[in-house]
């Protein structure tokens, strides 16, 4: 019995740490959003909030995936891929809308 608990202890610790990281990440993702809203209160700047938000959460999600060495077919990697896709979409939209505004001005 003792041997089993000794063998499971590091795995259990690791699972606990993973779960703690997950809660901390959720708190971070929420706080980052509120901080960006406070940093860019003006209507013109709000356009960039999603791009900045997804850039930050992609980095945080990558740290989670890399630190715990998640396999490719796991939900944290799927979430990371989703964040990357959303980041690309919002960056592209920001560039498009900025170019459109510049063209309209001239």
């Amino acid at each position: 019995m003792d041997k089993i608990s000794e063998r499971n202890s590091p795995e259990l610790d690791n699972a606990r740490e993973k779960q703690r990281s997950l809660f901390l990440l959720i708190a971070l993702y929420t706080l980052v959003f509120f901080l960006l809203v406070l940093l860019f209160p003006k209507e013109n700047d709000m356009l960039y909030i999603p791009a900045y938000y997804f850039a930050v959460v992609t980095v945080l999600q990558s740290s989670y995936v890399i630190y715990y060495k998640f396999p490719f077919k796991s939900w944290p990697v799927a979430v990371l891929i989703l964040f990357v896709i959303l980041l690309i979409l919002f960056v592209a939209f920001s560039i498009y809308i900025t170019g459109l505004a510049a063209a309209y001005q001239h």
Partner: peptide, 20 residues
């Protein structure tokens, strides 16, 4: 607490302070 969680906690404290 592992190093990653320590970093996350430090970031949360930093973000909270900045938000306030």
């Amino acid at each position: 607490m592992n190093i990653l969680n320590k970093i996350y906690t430090a970031l949360i404290i930093l973000l909270l302070t900045s938000s306030i």
